[in-house]
Each structure stands twice: as structure tokens, then as C-alpha cells.
């Protein structure tokens, strides 16, 4: 087949986000907030070398959430016992 993969325009990415939101039955802001929070949480424990890759899919009544995080260093700290 002779088709090239068109470079995805900003508009097309908007549509991709919208469809992802439709599939999950969430609001547009959910994904953005979720991604920011996950990044913040992991940053507490590791020095991230890249942004986390988060994929959210829905299979019938179950959500499958997978998070891939790459880090340069795991932070070392002790937990106080009081």
C-alpha cells in the first residue's frame, strides 16, 4: 500500500485525546491530571530521566493502567520510626 503515515497535526492529536477520553468515559482533564500526579509521585522516590509513559485502556468493566518510568537514580532516604 502506497500510503505514508501523515505527520500528526496538532488537531489530530486533539482528536486522539478526545477519543481516548470517550473510550475511558472520563473528562478531558482526567488524563492530564493523572499524568502530572503520577510523575510527581515517582519523582519523590527516583530521579526520572524521562516523562512516565502512561497507558490507560478499558476492557469491558475493567481499566488497565500501565506505567513505565525510567530513572537515573533511586533516591535513598530513611523512614523515621515514631
Amino acid at each position: 500500500m502506497a500510503f505514508r503515515k501523515n505527520k500528526k497535526s496538532e488537531e489530530f492529536l486533539r482528536l486522539e485525546n478526545l477519543i481516548e477520553k470517550d473510550r475511558l468515559g472520563t473528562t478531558c482533564d482526567f488524563s492530564t491530571l493523572f499524568k502530572i500526579d503520577i510523575e510527581n509521585l515517582f519523582s519523590e522516590y527516583c530521579e526520572l530521566s524521562d516523562k512516565p509513559i502512561i497507558s490507560l485502556t478499558r476492557e469491558k468493566d475493567t481499566f488497565i493502567i500501565s506505567v513505565t518510568v525510567k530513572a537515573n537514580r533511586i533516591k535513598t532516604f530513611a523512614v523515621s520510626k515514631n
Partner: peptide, 17 residues
């Protein structure tokens, strides 16, 4: 339109849906 980069290509559509 596809040639001018505006239309959605068949490959894009397949991936998206």
C-alpha cells in the same frame, strides 16, 4: 488535501480506530 498534509491518511485512521 492529503498531499497538502491536511487530510487524515488511511494509516492514521487505522491507528486511531
Amino acid at each position: 488535501l492529503m498531499m497538502s498534509g491536511y487530510g487524515v491518511s488511511a494509516e492514521n485512521v487505522k491507528d486511531l480506530l
